[in-house]
Write a protein that binds this DNA or RNA. Structure first.
Length: 424
RNA sequence: GUGAGCGUAGCCCAGCGGUCAAGGCGCCUGGCUGUGGCCCAGGAUAUCGAGGGUUCGAAUCCCUCCGCUCACCCCA
């Protein structure tokens, strides 16, 4: 028996209301900010991600689905959406458009990971990217968009800061000017405490010192508490940017909190980084994460172009909608169920169902030759508002019985008038 | 890649060495030869995850593998 590959899942009809809801809200917020939808391919040349995301990142090192296609070119199932958007921005000369260019996308991303609650090998992201503008007000706009989304989804209703962690976490990790100096200092500081660090952190010290900060091991946390903060080592421009952003966020009255240990796993982030966490804490609690990536466009072959954005995980959002008990609109049930008795009536029923559908009425039927009882039972269980019954008697008189499933009342009406009746 | 827990019908699950593997939901049929929801009666569906071993005998014990879940790493 075949099964969906590990870390993938079928999104069954019962789940669709959640997806429709989230996607509809996402599109609505993006549109309200003037962001336009873009679709990039599900796979790209492997090099795009190696250069864009960073060769030393976990994603590139161990999580990419990379394969040679039939011509031998190395392709990668996209592990994230930002690098492809930058590629498209360059490929289509979007730098010539009025800046910033505001884009969003909705689609799957692939990472080879051990699946877990809220983590999949194929998952779906909403990505929002604004390219070509360095002003911190654009950072604020993007954060504001994310905030509005969660607001609309109903995940922030009464979100009380009293319980647990704040919802919006913010930090600045500097730029290519000031970050190296900070990292050097960080490394120097940690080097004095190697004995207290976990084995992971000992290797992080060499390869990716920033990530030392968010290790959860008690020993490492103790060291991290006393270590220098990136915010204290920003260069003048980065400092100004961060202060500016905070002014705007305060003006917008977002209850964010600065988290000195917030660093992100993708190498392309500069300056602003942020995450949105749900009210209910869980292992994979981050629903959205992003920040500024002023060096990415250049890294994938363009001119230096500042940009900000974020990605939100749809599976995680849905997980949290369920945990929070958010009610989503359900998909409607059929209006009419067509029941037939006898072969001649069956033919006529087929025809009548088609006529009704052309008038925009949702009609379902069982079509197998079952008892009227069985057909009505099915009409009931699919939630049809009306059952239409067509047997020899109706066939003879050109009529059909319309039964209201809620009240049990039924009327015999001419076949050419059913449409009008049901449309009411 | 590491660690832990779990695999019995479409779903939830009882059974934990010895009659035909129990029950609930769902599905089908009938009670009502053309009338649903409730009720009643009946029915179908399980290589008990796979392979090997122990035993007179294994869904039950042991081993291996596979899968699922949760957590770590990391991330949406």
């Amino acid at each position: 028996m075949y099964k969906a590959p590990r870390g993938t899942e079928d999104i069954l009809p019962a789940e669709q209301p959640y997806w429709r809801f989230v996607e509809a809200q996402a599109e609505a917020v993006c549109r309200s900010y003037g962001y336009q939808r873009i679709e990039t391919p599900m796979f790209e040349e492997a090099g795009l991600f190696e250069r864009g995301v960073g060769a030393a990142s976990d994603i590139v090192e161990k999580e990419m689905y990379t394969f040679p296609d039939r011509s031998g070119d190395l392709m990668t199932l996209r592990p994230e959406g930002t690098a492809p958007v930058c590629r498209a921005y360059l490929e289509h000369g979007m730098a010539q458009l009025p800046q910033p260019v505001r884009l969003y996308y909705l689609g799957p991303a692939f990472r080879y990971e051990r699946p877990q609650a809220g983590r999949f090998r194929q998952h779906h992201q909403l990505g929002v990217e604004a390219l070509g503008e360095a002003d911190p007000a654009l950072d604020a706009e993007v954060i504001s968009l994310a905030w509005d989304l969660f607001q609309r989804l109903g995940l922030m209703v009464g979100a009380p800061r009293s319980i647990g962690a704040p919802l919006l976490k913010l930090n600045s990790i500097g730029c290519s000017q000031c970050r190296p100096r900070y990292i050097a200092e960080l490394r120097a500081n940690y080097s004095g405490h190697v004995e207290q660090l976990c084995t992971d952190c000992r290797s992080r010290l060499e390869r990716n010192p920033l990530r030392l900060l968010d290790c959860k091991q008690p020993g490492c946390q103790a060291v991290a508490g006393a270590v220098p903060r990136s915010l204290d080592h920003l260069c003048h421009d980065c400092r100004q940017h961060f202060d500016g952003l905070q002014v705007y966020l305060k003006a917008l009255a977002f209850p964010y909190s600065v988290d000195h240990r917030l660093v992100r796993g993708l190498d392309y982030y500069t300056r602003t980084v942020f995450e949105v966490q749900p009210v209910v804490e869980g292992a994979q609690s981050t629903m959205a994460g992003g920040g500024r990536y002023d060096g990415l466009v250049e890294a994938v072959g363009g001119k230096p172009t500042p940009a900000v954005g974020f990605a939100a995980g749809l599976e995680r959002i849905i997980l949290n909608l369920k945990r929070a008990g958010v009610h989503v609109p359900d998909s409607g049930s059929p209006v009419a169920f067509m029941a037939h008795l006898g072969p001649a009536a069956k033919e006529r029923a087929l025809l009548l169902a088609g006529e009704l559908r052309r008038r925009g009425i949702t009609v379902v039927a069982a079509w197998s030759d079952r008892s009227l009882r069985a057909q009505l039972r099915q009409a009931n269980s699919v939630g049809a508002r009306y059952a239409l019954i067509l047997g020899d008697a109706e066939l003879a008189s050109g009529s059909v019985v319309v039964r209201d499933m809620a009240t049990g009342e039924q009327q015999t009406v001419p076949q050419d008038q059913v449409g009008g009746r049901l449309a009411l």
